[in-house]
């Protein structure tokens, strides 16, 4: 048998590790449940006069079931969301993928995009606008839980409601948070469909990252 020497190669992890993909798709479903059931609740007493969502867009055939969907979905949203935040911090994913965000880079990316010089060949690196949008939507998700708690339990969490300037303001903030998340979703889903390999990467894990060729050599028999 021949013996040769070759460089030691450590296989990297998938761009989107399995736990992250599971949390992403759980969140996708739960977010849709929360948004559309929230529209059902909203329609019972609208914030913007004359603005209704209509039965096609609502989850729950009337307010009672929209409420039940919302109050069931909230557990999945919160548990999955906390798991995602813990994972993002503990794995260093937030730090390496979302930070830092430099304002100059954001401006340059926006200008490039407006000139159709949008680079999406490398899935492993987010541009400054992507980073900014992901940070905004994560913060909006956290804010939704906080404003949601305030309008769910305005007496038990009366301090929270006072901080927001009252029940009706908390309610408007909860609505505004939804609008931010829906705005993000429109951009996010449109871009994922325009560059389908990003969508496939969130299903399969995508390219392997962090593969290293070591200085050491291993013995191959």
């Amino acid at each position: 048998m021949r013996e040769t020497m070759r460089p030691l190669v450590t296989a990297g992890r998938p761009l989107h590790p399995l736990p992250l993909r599971i949390m992403h798709w759980v969140n996708a479903v739960v977010m849709l449940v929360m948004i559309t059931s929230g529209w059902g609740i909203y329609d019972d007493d609208v914030i913007i006069r004359g603005f209704h969502f209509g039965s096609f867009w609502r989850l729950g055939d009337w307010a009672a079931w929209s409420l039940n969907w919302h109050f069931a979905g909230m557990w999945f949203l919160a548990i999955n969301g906390v798991a995602y935040l813990v994972y993002g911090v503990a794995s260093g994913r937030f730090r390496t993928k979302l930070l830092p965000i430099r304002p100059a880079e954001v401006v340059r990316t926006v200008v490039d995009t407006l000139h159709f010089r949008i680079a999406h060949e490398d899935l492993t690196v987010y541009n400054a606008v992507q980073k900014l949008l992901y940070v905004i939507v994560i913060l909006a998700g956290i804010a939704q839980v906080v404003t949601g708690l305030a309008i769910w339990k305005p007496v038990q969490f009366s301090g929270l409601v006072a901080l927001m300037g009252g029940f009706q303001t908390a309610r408007v903030l909860h609505f505004a948070g939804m609008a931010i998340i829906v705005g993000f979703l429109v951009v996010h889903v449109t871009l994922a469909l325009l560059v389908p390999k990003t969508l496939l990467a969130m299903l399969s894990g995508g390219p392997r990252v962090g593969a290293q060729v070591s200085d050491k050599e291993e013995l191959v028999r």
Partner: peptide
Amino acid sequence: IQHICVEGWS
């Protein structure tokens, strides 16, 4: 006290 309706008004 504040009266809060499940519909959202108060």
